[in-house]
């Protein structure tokens, strides 16, 4: 029996480019190149390793986004995923985490799954809550923020590293895991992978295919709203402490004053 893995990924604006907001305070995607979110590359990598360790597995990579988001799918396919699902609909413009998790959940059910793998957050919105929302919507256990993950005997197990302790966690399949940027560097696609990706199926879906009411998504359906967007103020000059024997104390006092310690 084949292990069905779905990896949910996001196509994000290149963080090294100049990013701007459009008039409706959403990201102006035309003004900047996009790419597969770096944090989602870790999810694709872990899915590939799980699939390689399994007797038989199939990886579907899924994204919700504009036409260019196909680039993110293509990258994941060239890394080694087997097929892709792309949900694209004009009504999705401005969708927040609630709407995104709704669409992802419907698309994952549509694809069929035993294991859902996600990154820890997106590199643009960085809300970090979609994995949890998704697991709730799918009604499956969630084991999040793993730095190590493995699947065997109908279970997914992993390690979650906290500040004070590391936890070993496990869940019965079907389940959702999210992995951190400590889970292992993602592989670079090989030329063979790039050539093979061209022939892999990409299923295109819109909201009606998934039976979703357009009113539940988009800017109008969002539960959150961006009120204002402004450029970050320029850095102010720092405080220079000259060490005359009391430097350590002064440093500690500074940190305490600003509640860093």
């Amino acid at each position: 029996m084949s292990l069905r893995i779905v990896v949910a990924v996001k196509y994000v604006p290149d963080a090294t480019g100049d990013r701007h907001f459009a008039d409706d305070l959403t990201t102006d995607r035309d003004a900047v190149d996009g790419l597969l979110s770096e944090l989602d590359e870790y999810a694709v990598e872990q899915a590939l390793q799980i699939a390689e360790a399994a007797d038989d597995a199939e990886i579907t990579v899924l994204t919700v986004g504009p036409a260019d988001a196909k680039d993110a799918l293509r990258k994941a396919l060239s890394m080694g995923a087997d097929k892709a699902v792309h949900v694209e609909d004009d009504a999705l413009h401005g969708t927040d985490v609630m709407g995104t998790s709704l669409v992802l959940a419907k698309a994952i059910e549509h694809a069929g799954f035993d294991l859902v793998v996600t990154g820890m957050a997106s590199t643009d919105g960085t809300a970090g809550v979609v994995p949890a929302l998704l697991a709730e919507r799918l009604g499956i256990p969630q084991v999040t923020l793993l730095s190590e993950v493995a699947v065997s005997g109908g279970k997914v197990t992993g390690r979650r590293d906290g500040d004070a302790a590391s936890e070993q966690v496990e869940a019965s399949l079907p389940a959702l895991v999210s992995v951190t940027d400590q889970s292992g560097e993602a592989r670079y696609p090989s030329f063979k992978g790039i050539m093979a990706a061209k022939k892999k199926p990409v299923e295109a879906l819109d909201l009606s295919d998934l039976g979703i009411d357009a009113a539940d998504v988009g800017l109008a359906g969002a539960w959150t709203a961006v009120q204002e967007a402004a450029a970050r103020p320029a850095r102010s000059a720092g405080t220079i402490v000259k060490d005359e024997g009391e430097g350590g104390k002064q440093l500690a006092a500074f940190l305490a004053e600003h509640k860093f310690i």
Binding site: Y188, P189, K192
Partner: peptide, 22 residues
């Protein structure tokens, strides 16, 4: 080693000899 892992040394050779088919 990383260059090998991403298949650069096999770029112009057929897959039957371990190449990338480029």
């Amino acid at each position: 080693r990383e260059m090998g892992r991403m298949g650069l040394f096999g770029l112009p050779f057929p897959e039957e000899y371990g190449g990338m088919g480029g």
